[in-house]
């Protein structure tokens, strides 16, 4: 009866649902395909390990000796020993874990860490500001927590990104306004990006440590080293984007260089800046993780990657990688959100 008297809202709701499902479909298909590929790859990746285990467990395998197995191709081995394939999916420390193992690892090292988590109500004092019991906070302040490590990486990333962006903008302004800088800075900026960051990261840490700089800053500097470059390139392009006529107009007003900068070049460069910032923040995150690798950092996603590889904990490596990817996605999305807001307010979003 309601459907007869008032059918419109139901239909639009359905249509809306359908539309959003259709919009999500390509994403779902691609994700499913990737997961399928991953799952399919698990068997061949772990098969030799599985065969080894099966042999030691006294099962009959063809060929029978490890030497012969070593000389046989993987495909042949899998065809001859199909019974071993399920075992390839059930390893404690596989070469390639199943995707669900990684998801479980991520859960156990984040939300799964909570012990007796309940809402206690807000009260006075620092320890009560969240309104949650002590057990909840284990999710973020436990050394095992991926969120804890993610923050250890994110904080220097954000600082490095801020330093890199500021430096990049300053250099771009200099390049656009000063011919000497135009000729001299850009080649150095390009050269700086050809040096493997992995090679100079330990030196930066050691040198800064020698002069007493510790904590966030060393990691941030390495991350800014990667993030300033896209900002310089994008900003130079953006500041030079005003065409002849737009500059001529300023000339007819007899505008000063500063006025041309603030009223024309800078606003014209903002769309370019945002495009650069998205690349820059992803580069900053990579920079921080790379800075953690050769320096024996104890905390951070890079440290998790490193300790995972020391102890053959592939699941831990994958979980850290996935967390890093999530962080990058969120950061890029955040910049996109700011971009939409700013450009919309400037009347530049169509």
């Amino acid at each position: 009866m309601t459907a007869l008297t008032n059918p419109a809202p139901r239909r639009t709701l359905l249509a809306h649902l359908f539309a959003s499902l259709r919009g999500a479909l390509p994403v779902v298909v691609v994700v499913a395909a990737l997961l399928g590929l991953w799952l399919a790859a698990v068997a061949p990746m772990n098969f030799r390990l599985a065969l080894d285990a099966a042999m030691r467990g006294g099962e009959d395998v063809t060929p029978a000796t490890p030497d012969e197995q070593g000389e046989t191709g993987l495909v042949r081995l899998m065809i001859d020993n199909p019974g071993v394939i399920p075992a390839a999916y059930a390893f404690e420390r596989p070469r390639l874990p199943r995707p669900q193992d990684v998801v479980v690892e991520m859960y156990e090292n984040t939300i799964g860490l909570a012990r007796g988590c309940e809402f206690t109500g807000w009260g006075a004092g620092r320890e009560h500001w969240t309104g949650l019991s002590e057990g909840c906070l284990r999710v973020v302040n436990n050394r095992r927590s991926l969120l804890f490590h993610a923050w250890q990486t994110l904080a220097p990333t954000l600082l490095g990104f801020a330093i890199g962006t500021g430096l990049g903008i300053l250099l771009a302004v200099g390049i656009v306004h000063n011919r000497t800088m135009d000729l001299s800075v850009m080649p150095w900026a390009i050269a700086s990006q050809t040096i493997p960051i992995l090679a100079i990261a330990p030196m930066v840490i050691v040198v800064l440590n020698a002069v007493g700089v510790q904590g966030l800053l060393p990691k941030s500097l390495i991350s800014s080293y990667l993030s300033f470059f896209p900002v310089v390139v994008g900003m130079v392009k953006g500041l030079r984007s005003p065409r002849g006529m737009e500059l001529d107009l300023m000339r007819t007003y007899s505008a000063s260089g500063a006025q041309v900068f603030w009223k024309l070049r800078l606003p014209a460069s903002l769309p370019y800046l945002f495009a650069s910032l998205k690349i820059g923040i992803a580069a900053a995150l990579v920079g921080t993780i790379v800075a953690e690798l050769p320096t024996g950092a104890r905390f951070g996603l890079g440290a998790r990657l490193l300790s995972g590889s020391y102890y053959g904990q592939t699941v831990q490596i994958w979980a850290a990688l996935l967390m890093a990817a999530l962080c990058a996605a969120v950061l890029v999305w955040l910049i996109g959100a700011v971009e939409r807001r700013v450009l919309d307010r400037m009347g530049l979003a169509r």
Partner: peptide, 9 residues
């Protein structure tokens, strides 16, 4: 000028 050349922002 030949084109309006208004600043879009």
């Amino acid at each position: 000028f030949q084109a309006a050349g208004l600043y879009p922002w």
